[in-house]
Amino acid sequence: MQPTEVRQIVLDIIADIALDDDVTKIDDSIALRDQLDLDSMDFLDIVMELKKQHKVEVPQEDYPKLATMESCVTYLTPKFQALQ
């Protein structure tokens, strides 16, 4: 799986949670929290959605790696690739 596909997966999950936010304008290098109405409960949901939809597990100590879209993609791409 390519980084662009991983980005799309994460974007879809976020769009599903932050229903009223415009996710098309996300700046990949800026913290998601600063651009969207996402709090710690929502980040837990992102983690749970990754597990539910894609069987990708994110241990608690790695949660900071989900801070920006860029860091999400860097961190998650190998995990998605390992699944295939």
């Binding site: 229903l19 109405d37 709090d39 949901d45």
Partner: peptide
């Protein structure tokens, strides 16, 4: 709509309900 960090916004997101 669009106000951030409010309890009602948290609730709606957790239940996946749009504000509208």
């Amino acid at each position: 709509k669009g106000e951030r960090g409010k309890p009602l916004a948290k609730l709606l997101k957790q239940l996946r309900l749009p504000y509208d």
